[in-house]
């Protein structure tokens, strides 16, 4: 058997794949956080809870409406996105002009409520969710076995990240968005409905989290607490990448997923903490993050 630094190459590649999968979710979530932060200037603490909600909606659709993975992939982000817009319109809007810390506290409270309610009705053990028929099985690449579903998740999230980057950086809507991030008052004066832009952006960011949730359902089971610990890692990812750029959050998300996967191979004890250690080192060297502008 071929080995790299005394580790069988199969194990190395399979952990690399796990890392890529985790990285896909980090990237999708930190991307949503970055967009929302840009426009609303708040850190959306309930992002993890809404990611969970996406998975939960997919499970409920299957259970009660007999709608499978593919419809869920469309419906769950839509439902959660609308729910997010409702949150923005009824609550977050009222915090404008206040210290952004209040936004953090409010969304933290919302996360507790959403997760608490989900836990009361669904317990903590989680429900299994099957991989869709078309994506079962896998292929042998010679050096490792690649399950089709995992390849699909990585592919979709790369495409989604690319698409979001394209929309934000190359389209008119994205130009409005970036302009409103820089100076909302001036953009409003040009006749663009900034409050509506904010609502839509929040909805989109949240829908992205819900989509990640649906994709995660077959891998991690549907569990009310699946987003709770993930969100803290994603925060660390955001700190490492810096809040300035969308590209930064995508690259850091994938990179840290892979690094975490590799740590599992070479030094398993540190696999839970490696992201936080990297965060501490980055803070010492570049306090604004790798891609961030100075705070």
């Amino acid at each position: 058997m071929t080995t790299v630094f005394g580790v069988p190459i199969q194990a190395l590649f399979s952990q690399l794949l796990v890392g890529l999968i985790n990285g896909s979710f980090y990237a999708l979530l930190s991307l949503g956080l970055a967009i929302i932060f840009g426009l609303l200037n708040i850190i959306n603490f309930c992002h993890g809870a809404l990611y969970m909600l996406g998975a939960l909606v997919a499970w409920l659709l299957l259970r009660f409406f007999d709608l499978g993975y593919w419809p869920a992939l469309l419906i769950a982000p839509l439902v959660v996105g609308l729910f997010g817009m409702l949150i923005e319109r009824t609550m977050l809007k009222r915090l404008q002009g206040l210290d952004p810390l209040f936004g953090l506290l409010l969304t933290f409270g919302l996360a507790l409520v959403i997760q608490g309610v989900a836990r009361n009705y669904f317990g903590v053990s989680g429900e299994p969710y099957d991989v869709p028929e078309q994506l079962t099985g896998g292929r042998n690449l010679g050096f490792m076995f690649l399950p089709n579903y995992r390849a699909w998740v990585v592919l979709v999230s790369v495409v989604l990240c690319g698409l979001t980057w394209f929309v934000a950086e190359r389209t008119r809507m994205g130009a409005y968005l970036r302009a409103a991030t820089e100076n909302p008052v001036l953009v409003q004066a040009f006749g663009i409905n900034v409050p509506r832009l904010i609502t839509i952006t929040y909805g989109l960011g949240v829908a992205l989290a819900a989509l990640a949730g649906v994709m995660a359902a077959p891998i991690y089971r549907v569990n009310p607490l699946m987003g709770a610990d993930l969100i803290i890692v994603v925060f660390a990812v955001v700190v490492i990448g810096g809040m300035g750029s969308i590209l930064g959050s995508i690259v850091t998300g994938f990179a840290l997923g892979v690094i975490e996967g590799l740590t599992k191979v070479f030094y398993p004890e540190a696999s839970n903490t490696v992201v936080f250690v990297i965060m501490a080192i980055v803070l010492l060297v570049k306090p604004a993050g790798l891609f961030g502008r100075t705070a």
């Binding site: 932060f37 952004p100 810390l101 953090l104 803290i232 809040m243 965060m279 501490a280 803070l283 705070a295």
Partner: peptide
Amino acid sequence: LAIRSQGIYFSMITLALAQM
């Protein structure tokens, strides 16, 4: 480590270090 950053960053960094 944490006071090198401000506001929301400070909160996120303290949270991450505590999780570690």
